[in-house]
Design a protein around this nucleic acid. Structure first.
Lengths: 225, 225
DNA sequence: GATCCGCGAACGGTATACCAAAATGGGCGA
DNA sequence: TCGCCCATTTTGGTATACCGTTCGCGGATC
């Protein structure tokens, strides 16, 4: 069988259901029903829900059904502020400690993103995008940072995903990723940190714009896709 | 009854046991035994252990007993690096958004620390120290940041506690806290950020020094205290 | 007709029983 | 005498049954 624990597998399935919109924000997750639907018992389902709660994808209420999180713009912006300092720290560390293999990993992921940018569906494109950022953080050689960063990525995944499919600025993303990867490879501190900062600013702009132009319709649209 | 859920209460008791040394680093926590000892069932005990695992106080191994975390110097340094950027972010935000009440809260906690610095035992002194930092973060008006910061404080609590009792530089801590509080009150960005950075550097020096002069003996000594 | 009270179903919280994998210790063989 | 292997026991993982609380609905009353 798979090496992942059962709660993790359940969490993965639930996460995907939430992020794709199969479980829309505000929906209640009744552990009994969900467990039955997935053919597992309540205990691992319960644990899976806790995992997602700690990731910020569902909110727990005392003695009530957990709800799929429906973050406000402020909450997302707050998360982004934390993600920003985490990524900047990762970039700084990576500049110092990244091994050639790790640099190659980052560069390779960037090249892969360029390759698939024309054909890939948004979901695959995004998975690669996340992998790129994760590779940089992992090059920083700080497991705690990687873990926390990963949690914030998961928390922001839905917002990023939804906001990115309306603005088709993949070209800019690719250029910035390219600069970041090149900055890392050549240990060009200014280039890497500067572009990383720009990249995050752009992300924040996108998400803010997405929120301001009405979230509801787009959320529904994404759920159908 | 208490408003906190049972798993939280159990987690609190376990946390205290770990931080005071009653459960020394490296000890295994068998959920059956611990549950019996505390007079609860395995289910909430299990959940409590997960809470502490997410805080980094215990490490989970697949299909094995959880262990009380025994972080290496590198792990602690890694945690400190993350804590550093979190606190710096909190300071920046607090400079912008802190309300007069929040400033008063920070200042009040500093004054309280000055008061008790002569008499309080290390544990109480530390609780107040943490409350001071938490108050700054809470003034940043970013719940996600507060939550993550809190987790890192808990993770580092033991190291800070053990390293602080050997170096009696409470005077320096108090001076730096005073400057930080004053910087916040007068919205003096350079003062606040500068002193916060110094404060964290000093903390890192202390902890490094503590690790280098042999951890074992002191760990035992703390356990007896 | 609206409101309030109460009853019942539904849900999360907790306890417990069962299962499978892993560690350990003893015995058997080389 | 040393090492390997198997059985027993210990442990976490999972399923399920029970309990207390909460919320919704229906009826009775004002």
């Amino acid at each position: 069988m798979s090496s992942l624990t059962l709660p993790q597998q359940i969490a993965d399935r639930l996460r995907r259901a939430i992020l794709t919109g199969a479980l829309p924000p505000g929906a209640s997750i009744k552990e009994r029903d969900q467990a039955a639907e997935m053919g597992v018992s309540r205990t691992p389902m319960r644990e899976a829900i806790r995992i997602l709660a700690q990731e910020g994808l569902v909110t727990l209420r005392p003695a009530r059904s957990p709800l799929v999180a429906h973050p406000s713009l402020k909450e997302v912006t707050d998360d982004l502020a934390v993600l920003r300092v985490l990524e900047m720290l990762a970039c700084e560390r990576a500049l110092e400690t990244a091994t050639p293999e790790q640099v190659a990993q980052v560069t390779g992921l960037h090249e892969r993103m360029v390759e698939i940018s024309d054909t890939a569906d948004p979901l695959d494109f995004f998975e690669t995008d996340m992998a790129f950022h994760r590779a940089i953080v992992s090059a920083a050689d700080n497991p705690a940072l990687a873990e926390t960063h990963s949690a914030y990525l998961a928390r922001l995944w839905r917002s990023r995903f939804l906001s990115a499919r309306m603005r088709s600025d993949r070209a800019r993303v690719l250029r910035q990723h390219g600069d970041i990867a090149r900055g890392l490879a050549t240990r060009n501190r200014d280039l890497m940190l500067g572009e990383a900062a720009h990249h995050l600013e752009r992300l924040e702009d996108n998400i803010r714009h997405f929120f301001e132009t009405g979230e509801e319709e787009r959320t529904q649209a994404a759920a159908r896709a």
